[in-house]
Computed example of a mutant assay.
Amino acid sequence: MKFPVVLHKDPNSDYGVTVPDVPGSFSAGVTMDEALENTLEALALHFEGLMADGEPLPQPQSLEAHQGNPDYAGGVWAVVDFDVTPYLGKAVRFNATLPEHLLARIDAYVRNHPAQKSRSGFLAEASLKMLQQG
Rank of each mutant, 00 (worst) to 15 (best):
D81F: 05
P11E: 05
L88H: 04
E37P: 08
S25W: 10
P58M: 08
H46G: 01
D83M: 06
Q59H: 13
L43D: 01
N69I: 02
E48F: 09
A28M: 08
Y72K: 14
H8R: 14
R93N: 13
L43T: 03
G89M: 09
M32Q: 14
P23Y: 05
V6Q: 02
G134E: 13
V5P: 00
N95M: 08
F82C: 04
E125F: 11
V19S: 01
P4D: 04
V80N: 00
N38P: 02
V110D: 00
D21G: 03
P70I: 13
L103I: 08
E55A: 13
F26L: 11
G75Y: 01
K2T: 08
D33C: 04
G54T: 04
R105C: 09
P11L: 02
V76K: 11
E64Y: 04
L63N: 11
H8E: 13
D81I: 03
I106A: 02
A65D: 12
L43F: 04
V30K: 15
M32T: 10
V22M: 15
G49P: 12
K90M: 14
L40V: 06
M32G: 10
F82L: 05
L88N: 05
Q116L: 09
L7S: 02
F3H: 00
T39E: 08
D71P: 11
Y72L: 06
Y72I: 06
K90D: 08
Q67I: 14
P86W: 06
G121C: 03
P60Q: 10
I106W: 07
E34I: 05
A91Q: 14
H101T: 06
P86G: 07
L103A: 13
A65I: 03
R111W: 02
T97G: 03
Y109F: 14
V6N: 00
N38F: 03
K117Y: 00
T18R: 12
L63E: 12
V76I: 10
P11K: 14
A44K: 15
V110G: 01
H113W: 07
F26S: 00
P99G: 11
F47E: 06
F26H: 01
F26K: 04
P23S: 05
A104Y: 09
F122S: 00
N95I: 07
L131H: 08
S62K: 15
D33I: 04
P20A: 05
L36Y: 01
S127T: 14
D71W: 06
K2P: 05
